[in-house]
Design a protein around this nucleic acid. Sequence first.
RNA 1: GCGGAUGUAGCUCAGUUGGCAGAGCACCUGGUUGUGGCCCAGGGGGUCGUGGGUUCAACCCCCAUCAUUCGCC
Length: 377
Amino acid sequence: MVTPLIPGRFTIRATDGKARLGTLQTAHGVVETPIFMPVGTVGRVKAVAPDDLAGIGAEIILGNTYHLYLRPGDELIHRRGGLHGFTAWNKPVLTDSGGFQAFSLSELRTIRENGVEFRSHLDGSQHLFTPEKVVEIQRNLNSDIMMVLDECVAYGTPYDYTAKSIELTTRWALRSRAIHPACSSGNLLFAITQGGFFADLRSRSVEQLCGHDFDGFAIGGLSVGEPKSLMYDLLAHTVPLLPADKPRYLMGVGTPVDIVTGIENGVDMFDCVLPTRNARNGTLYTSQGKINIKRTQYAEDDGPLDPGCSCYTCRTFSRAYLRHLQHSGEVTAFRLNSVHNLTYFLNLVRGARAAVAEGRLAAFAAGIRAVYPEGGV
RNA sequence: GCGGAUGUAGCUCAGUUGGCAGAGCACCUGGUUGUGGCCCAGGGGGUCGUGGGUUCAACCCCCAUCAUUCGCC
């Protein structure tokens, strides 16, 4: 009765302008796009248990190669049935390659032709990530969507360095594909385009990668401190260059307005720590805008966090109680706030999918921008 | 009853030879974009226990007094 899944098959069912409504098949299920993917760096979305994720409606989550390799180790996870068996999450998982950690934990790392040498942030031990090693780790994790090792350059990196960097990222991507040919397993492999903040380098990076048979293409290296308008300009420039028949993934982005803008430009997948990290700090996204639950004005506010939300948190607790939990440093505050913020982000892409299906994405996006007028951080 | 110690921000405490009242935490307001449950930025806060004295000038020196605390009768 159930047609077998064909990992990697991407079907576009509708479009609205440049935006697409699609389905991506993976070894652990079908993902409807555009999608937001909660981040679960060490094999768990922080503060959120699997049954919470079911209530939120999460369809795919992230894990991180760098963190899981260091602790508890990819081979240990492999012996326990991969990430799905180990973490009791049987839906799709995408794993980031560790390229971004090489960037963000950059104090003690060296980038060479062969790969990235780095020191563990846990114990200072020396390690080497090659493109091949990173694929091998992600196969041990049995990731549904593996990301190639890439070099992410900082905002402000000069043109010459960035130009050399995209060549390296391309060579690494092809080495990754060489040891993991298309259709060789249920582990899909996405390439990552780079190019810093130079439109022609963004174009060149896409040209070098898109002729090869990757299962999807990511845009990396954005939202690293640049002005908002620059990111949007590069997005509008780059997304149309990507293969139309493959999923497009904007890495590490973003705010509600960023996500809607990405969808309008034709991006299919997003991930960001913002909803979960901000949840733990008391910054919450609602249908009426962003609020800081710690504020004094909520001390005796008996209303729900977001009257327009039907998540467990909003159904059950008052703003006054949530503020109290946050002020008390109670771990339950992390959970309840994370459940709410993730519900907001998942509802956001759900709403966008419905809008694309009905050809009214522009109006939907205008509604989001009206609620988050400053760009919605 | 006698002797000592201590009284400075909500809390714990610095404060030089007498020269504009300080820190940490807490509190308040922002920030947080392929996550080190972190971190960063800004802000509001004072009858220096109380009363007197000396001095151009006192948290600081002198006297008295109150409170807290420790020890001894």
